[in-house]
Amino acid sequence: MNVTDLVEIIIAVALVIGALFTLVGSIGLLKLDTAMKRLHAPTKAATLGIGSLLVASMLHSFAFGSGSLKEILIMVFLFVTAPISANFIAKVAIHRGQDMPPPEPPKDQNWATLNPTDETVPGIEAPAKT
């Protein structure tokens, strides 16, 4: 067994791990019942699932062709942007009130999303101030 075989095995293992976690993310999206619970599934698949696939891609490019480090950029951009979209979805879920209502903040008046403003957004009822 030479080095090329070993690298190929490592790449294959990374691909399988990545595919497995992406699959679990999709299963979670289907199986979980509330919006906030569902939010957990895809944000997780994005980290280890895509990360593992990108490591496989990087290893392959270094072992069998011209090396490429673009995957690091993909990972960085993904890790920076994924929490922001998750945050937006969570804010919408809080507004629609399908989940249990969040507790009062221990300090300060209210959560920023629930703060009453002068603007009224069509389709979303103004949150009741308690």
Partner: peptide
């Protein structure tokens, strides 16, 4: 961002004056 990236927890909101984080 760290809280959202670690599985099992998601940052949902911040209190209006920035002294608390709401996590699911």
């Amino acid at each position: 961002g760290t809280i959202t990236l670690t599985p099992g927890t998601v940052t949902a909101d911040m209190s209006d004056e920035g002294h608390c984080l709401l996590i699911h």
